[in-house]
């Protein structure tokens, strides 16, 4: 069966791009040539096969959106909880000694020096406001769409756009950096760490240091091995020229604190 020859004709026929004369000839061929007719029925089956792919993809997309929405709701709840806890700490300072001797006190320490709390204290959502890109760059359109999706809280779509930026594009490091933040928004901290780490080593000085910082924070939040995360903060703390030197020093201090060690009992 000469499918190679028939395929462009079938496409033109179903897309309605044939002239009236060509269409008439096509119909005639269909009526008189059994092989042509059989090939056309295979073509129609192939379209149904594609429909199944479309359905499966849309189903997966809906699930992703659902997860993102649930994730966003949880994140908002979490933010409110952290904020409440911060206030609680301030208002109950006078009672801290009493609380600390009890289980609740220990739990509170855990929450303030735990990975989640430390991360929340230092993580800063860039809201992709800085994502502008060079309008002449090949991936400019993708970055613009990613920014729009991010702002619409469609993090799955934003991640798709950012992942689509080719490695050869000059804006690839920038895309990786924002991909890290996009993953952070959906609670995919291990993936965020990986994206930030790649951005850090992608050779764009505008993003390398801040990517290192966020990779270390994501490591902490992902619940990775403490020593491995501490090592990332140590390196920044040891470099006075690093943009996040002071924050890293502060973090190292907190990670090594007595309270952090106590909180480890509950982590």
């Amino acid at each position: 069966m000469n499918l190679e020859l028939y395929l462009p004709q079938f496409e033109a026929y179903t897309e309605g791009t044939l002239s009236p004369g060509e269409r008439e000839a096509f119909d005639l061929e269909l009526a008189s040539n059994p092989e042509f007719k059989e090939a056309f029925s295979l073509y129609q089956v192939s379209l149904h096969v594609m429909e199944q792919q479309i359905e499966d993809t849309l189903r997966a997309t809906l699930k992703d959106w659902e997860k993102t929405h649930s994730g966003a709701d949880s994140a908002r709840t979490e933010a409110r909880i952290v904020s409440f806890r911060a206030r609680l700490v301030r208002y109950s300072a006078a009672a801290a000694v009493l609380l600390l001797v009890g289980v609740f006190g220990l739990s509170l320490v855990s929450r303030n020096y735990g990975n989640q709390s430390l991360y929340a204290r230092y993580y800063d959502d860039p809201a992709l406001g800085g994502l502008r890109g060079d309008p002449s760059a090949p991936a400019a359109g993708l970055l613009e769409e990613a920014k729009e999706a991010y702002q619409n809280q469609d993090f799955a779509l934003a991640a798709d756009k950012l992942r689509a930026v080719p490695q050869t594009d000059p804006q690839y490091p920038e895309a990786l950096y924002y991909l890290g933040h996009t993953y952070s928004q959906t609670g995919q901290y291990a993936e965020a760490q990986q994206a930030f780490s790649q951005a850090a080593s992608a050779g764009d000085s505008r993003f390398s240091e801040k990517s290192e910082w966020y990779a270390a924070l994501s490591c902490l939040r992902a619940g990775e091995d403490d020593a491995a995360c501490q090592d990332l903060f140590d390196r920044m703390a040891a470099n006075p020229d690093h943009s996040f030197h002071h924050q890293a020093k502060e973090m190292v201090r907190q990670l090594g604190s007595f309270w952090r060690k106590i909180s480890g009992v509950f982590r």
Binding site: A39, L42, Y43, V45, V49
Partner: peptide, 26 residues
């Protein structure tokens, strides 16, 4: 796209049992 579509149709052509089943169902 052409290669992929052709590949799909060739697969159906090479598996007449499946193609026939799908034609009946669709």
């Amino acid at each position: 796209k052409y290669r992929c579509h052709l590949g799909l149709m060739q697969h159906l052509d090479n598996n007449p049992g499946i193609a026939q089943l799908l034609k009946q169902w669709l």
